[in-house]
């Protein structure tokens, strides 16, 4: 699904730089690439670092970026679309589609309609979120408009602003990442997602 962002920024560069700065505080890796093929190359590289042969990919991401799947196939990283949440229960690596980036907080808006799609971001150890560069908005105020539009759809929506990896400080206030959700988060902003 593609949301029409009302606030396409005058300067994607400045928003991206603010986003990257805020996300870096949380240990999130942020990269900008030109197109889906370049995105596939980056995902392959992360897969190699993780020493995995497959990546769980949301159906939404495949639908939005068919050429990303082709790029992954070409690079011998098996892109598997889970048909059930249990399939990604212990999956090491997954990729999802972000609907918007929020520069103010370094957050990404996720709103997968199907449960298996959503489960990727909840369960995998390392998550890549692929997001169109043009969806970057300055602040939570614009995110409010996007969230309102999602909630108003028939049947509602399940939307999350993801701001960094899963974390806890419940024991002695010591920060530990990867409690229930991903321990590592990578955001790929793609200028031309196809």
């Amino acid at each position: 699904m593609v949301l029409s962002a009302e606030f396409i920024p005058a300067s994607a560069d400045s928003l991206l730089s603010e986003f990257s700065e805020r996300a870096a505080d949380l240990g999130v890796v942020v990269e900008r690439v030109a197109d889906s093929d370049e995105a596939a190359a980056r995902i392959r590289r992360f897969g190699t670092e993780l020493d995995v042969e497959r990546v769980a990919v949301s159906a939404e991401l495949i639908a939005a970026a068919p050429s990303l799947k082709l790029g992954l196939d070409r690079r011998n990283l098996a892109a598997e679309v889970p048909d059930d949440a249990a399939r990604v229960r212990e999956a090491p690596f997954g990729a999802s589609l972000g609907l918007a980036g929020i520069a103010e907080t370094g957050s990404i808006l996720l709103a997968e309609a199907s449960l298996p799609d959503r489960a990727i971001g909840m369960l995998v150890a390392v998550q890549v979120i692929v997001c169109r560069t043009a969806t970057l908005v300055p602040s939570l105020d614009q995110a409010a408009a996007l969230l309102r539009a999602l909630a108003a759809r028939p049947g509602g929506a399940y939307a999350t602003l993801v701001t960094g990896p899963s974390r806890t400080a419940d024991i002695e206030r010591v920060l530990t990442v990867g409690v229930q959700g991903p321990a590592r988060l990578i955001v790929l902003f793609v200028d031309e997602l196809s």
Binding site: E104, G106, S107, R118, A159, L161, V162, R167, G181
Partner: peptide, 19 residues
């Protein structure tokens, strides 16, 4: 928790399909 935003701010409108 002295964060800019909590890791997951989730907005749930209605049940997921089949739930």
């Amino acid at each position: 928790t002295a964060q800019r935003l909590t890791s997951y701010s989730t907005f749930i409108t209605g049940p997921s399909a089949g739930h």
